[in-house]
């Protein structure tokens, strides 16, 4: 495959929990991310899926260096950036940008759209006012907003339009990689397809890479080349998206996919909704052994001991020692 653009190696993020005010002592640790390794190649879209509390957003923040690691390394463009300082980070942030879930929260309500899109350029590039204006209008055009939007305020925009502004800002510095943290979850259904198409077009046109963090497996299946499934801070399965979606190996991936409603009433009635018992356990007290074993149908006594590591088979990696065969799931029609 093509060149590696970004790589997380055995990354862990632990948040200590303190007790006591005058003499605080650590009483527990939340293992938000626990030994995650991911690779994003040039021009590739990697999907990162999992439920709330799985650590997928924290993983995205680690890559962006918005979150320091407890251990492990972060590399970007062939350079170790785990401990990069301010000046180095500034250079990295030109090449790696982010779009957040809630476009409302990421737009300054007192800044006109044009100024908001210009802001990253003011920080990272030295342009004259004329050049800046031209560049901003070109960026707005690329995300499907006409020049009149430059003078508007965020509150005059719909959710979909605000998200387009967020994408224009992320594109401003000509990045190589954009971390998309649930970019369509807050949008209306009829707008989600527009934004997905836009992301797909931009990626093809500019050879961009994305880390696409999402819980909508349909969108992941549509946009991503590869997908990594996280559960309680660990990657339990990763591989080419068509393999993982069509024939998931890890029992958690299988359960997750079977919980996604089908868009066909007859197939829906025939299959029903898989009901996975219980909820994701507290990361303060993760189960021993495989973190999924208390909810797993295929759990063996051995699953309670020893944490299963990812094992590669073909293009896929699965962290389940009792895996015996691929599950065949009906693909969404």
């Amino acid at each position: 495959m093509a060149d590696v653009l970004a790589r997380l190696t055995d990354v862990s993020v632990h948040f200590p929990v303190h007790e006591g005010v005058l003499f605080p002592r650590e009483v527990a640790r939340v293992r938000a991310v626990d030994g995650v390794s991911l690779t994003i190649h040039k021009g590739e879209v990697l999907g990162l899926v999992g439920e709330s509390g799985s650590g997928k957003s924290t993983t995205g923040r680690v890559l962006l260096r918005l979150q320091d690691v407890t251990s492990g390394t972060v590399a970007f463009g062939g350079q170790d950036i785990t401990h990069a300082r301010r000046r180095e980070l500034q250079a990295i942030r030109r090449r790696m940008t982010v779009v957040f879930q809630d476009p409302e929260a990421s737009c300054n309500p007192r800044m006109r759209v044009g100024d908001a899109v210009a802001e990253p350029l003011r920080v990272h590039a030295r342009l004259t006012t004329g050049e800046l204006q031209q560049k901003v209008l070109a960026l707005l055009d690329q995300v499907g907003l006409d020049s009149s939007f430059a003078l508007r305020w965020p509150h005059e925009l719909s959710g979909g339009q605000r998200q387009r502004v967020g994408i224009a800002r992320a594109l401003a510095t000509d990045p190589d990689l954009i971390v998309l943290d649930e970019p369509i979850s807050a949008l209306d259904v009829s707008i989600q397809a527009q934004v997905l198409n836009l992301l797909d077009d931009l990626r093809k046109k500019r050879g961009l890479s994305y880390l696409f963090i999402a819980h909508d497996l349909g969108a992941v299946a549509h946009l991503c080349d590869r997908v990594a499934v996280m559960y309680l801070g660990r990657v339990v399965e990763q591989g080419p998206v068509e393999d993982v979606i069509a024939a998931p190996r890890h029992p958690y991936t299988q359960a997750l996919l079977r919980s996604v409603p089908l868009h066909d009433p007859l197939a829906a009635r025939a299959r029903g909704l898989q009901v996975l018992d219980g909820e994701i356990p507290s990361p303060l007290a993760p189960p021993t052994g495989c973190a999924f074993h208390p909810r797993c149908r295929d759990a063996q006594p051995s699953c309670r001991e020893g944490r299963p590591e990812l094992v590669a088979l073909g293009a896929r990696q699965t962290a389940c020692p009792v895996w015996t065969g691929d599950a065949q799931l009906p693909i969404q029609s």
Partner: peptide
């Protein structure tokens, strides 16, 4: 307009 694996 619903995205899915079949629409890849």
């Amino acid at each position: 307009s619903i995205p899915s694996a079949a629409q890849r």
